[in-house]
Write a protein that binds this DNA or RNA. Sequence first.
DNA 1: GCCATCTGTGCAATCGATTGTCCTAAATTT
DNA 2: AAATTTAGGACAATCGATTGCACAGATGGC
Lengths: 338, 338
Amino acid sequence: MSSGSITINDIAKMLGISKSTVSRALSEHSDVNAETRHKVLELARKLNYTPNALALNLKQQRTNTIGVLIPETVNRFFAKAIGGIQRVANLAGYNVMICQSDESFVTERSNLRSLLTAHVDGVLVSVSAETDRTDHFQVLLDKNIPIVFFDRISEELNTSRVYTDNYEIAFEGTEHLISQGCQRIAIVAGPQNLYNSRNRLKGYMDALRKHNLPVKENYIVQSHFRAGSVEDYTRDLINLPQRPDAIFAINDFAAIEMMHVIKKNGLRIPQDIAILGFNNETICRFVEPALTSIDMSAYDMGSEAAALLLDQIKGNREPQKKLIKSRLVIRESTHLKG
Amino acid sequence: MSSGSITINDIAKMLGISKSTVSRALSEHSDVNAETRHKVLELARKLNYTPNALALNLKQQRTNTIGVLIPETVNRFFAKAIGGIQRVANLAGYNVMICQSDESFVTERSNLRSLLTAHVDGVLVSVSAETDRTDHFQVLLDKNIPIVFFDRISEELNTSRVYTDNYEIAFEGTEHLISQGCQRIAIVAGPQNLYNSRNRLKGYMDALRKHNLPVKENYIVQSHFRAGSVEDYTRDLINLPQRPDAIFAINDFAAIEMMHVIKKNGLRIPQDIAILGFNNETICRFVEPALTSIDMSAYDMGSEAAALLLDQIKGNREPQKKLIKSRLVIRESTHLKG
DNA sequence: GCCATCTGTGCAATCGATTGTCCTAAATTT
DNA sequence: AAATTTAGGACAATCGATTGCACAGATGGC
């Protein structure tokens, strides 16, 4: 009665039987006299009995909870991914505990400790912009807690992962710009400790090389996802002696801010500078010119990752790797020909 | 050894003492011989002992976890609020379990059951667009689990709450439009079962009345936050015989889509139609014309709500009500005079 | 009619902590 | 020196479930 809820013990006492019999009657998989079982089920229903999850957690050493460790919920990609994760998890009877690293390695490591303390049954991870090692994940693996990386994966650890074809799509995006006649293509690249950022940059460079265009240092801008610097590096780019005629942005919101700066400087999009975004936010269709972007299926990545994690939790110990293809969505901001 | 972690029992056996002594040595608040205590602490440190949270949860009937029940993480207001919630919760040693209702009453009720089963110590709630009653919350209150509502509050229940001055800011926004010379102001109003939506509409209507402008039925559009209908109702509005000369949108993203539709129809903003958004997204500054909006301090609402909840959990049973003021941010989309 | 089998149920250990009660030996008082 | 206090620690119950083992009574085989 302490928490106001009735327990298996209460039912046992009320019926004058032992609590083991009650437990067996409720769990259905043991020999209990049909009449006894009926009485137990009846009373349990009447009293609105629900098993105490805390007791089960302790006894069974699991919590039916999965941890999610992402950079930021305000990043729309992750906000959408959470949707997919929760749908899959909830359908399977799991709760979801979410932590944000705020793109900080130290916070990521601390979050991981919290999730460990909370005894989550598994963890979904997208690493922070600062993360360049994996020892903090090893602690979980040593304790047999499965981890599934999604989007911002770690290539070092042999875990399940859900990832996108960053190399291929960056290659395709860059080729698209070239096909529109662009010759001086700049890119805003993410932190190079991230697998995705490296691949994106590689795809960009390989596309340039394939078409015999020079890869120029000053056309490659380093960004760390933090807002606030966009105006600065955009200004730097358009003031270069050899002004770029296209910019591959790091995401759509940065792209839209760049467009704003470019237009303020009297340049036209796409005629003077074409712009290519990333993430295909809804808003891409409503800005002027409409923004070409890359669609990422964030929701699907989340649900696939959750599904793989549940697989691992249920004992399927073969790590699986799942590719979710992204897709170039061409709009006016890169439309010069055809 | 079952989960690989060492327990208080292991330490007791290794030192040849009882586990109660170990427990008392670790908790520091009881008479344990200084030497014994030292040996225990030493060994605990050496073995990297951490108390099993599951055992503590059962024993103490609490989980150091708070539940958060919101409509959607893809709604940026809530994504930001989560940031504030997590910062406060984590600093106080609490984990955060997040559920999304997807604006559905049924899902909201089901989420609440999950949180109850998970034995969260308290819950932060922003109700769904469909929610028009409160009996599902009463179940938690009956079990003495504190609830704090934020933003989309319930006025019926006597719980702590963090809310904004929707009436006042809608009044102020509408007066601002009037001050710019607008006479035919339309509004896109949210579901009227929501306290916030009702107040916003009331503020709008009272401002019109104060300035002797008519409140016209066909200037009031009902929206349910779902995307996809924006283009339709915008077209309807601009095709009215008496076309509105200003529209008070339901949020910034809807406002930007409206601007797109309006411009496509050859009308100018703000000269033909002024637009007022809601939420003051970063992007407001980068669209053309820059969008006037209302700043909501989502992060602060989240952290204040979390702080009030922790108060309640710690036993301060006086429900508190906290107002977070919003702020009109004037930009070009409503700038006609001065 | 005796032993073996089966059915249904209870007892008690277990998960890993906390905490009230009690016991022993040393220290203090008189 | 006897009596009383006190410190330090052990024992066991508790939180609410699950589950191996034992045991009683009924049934069946020979």
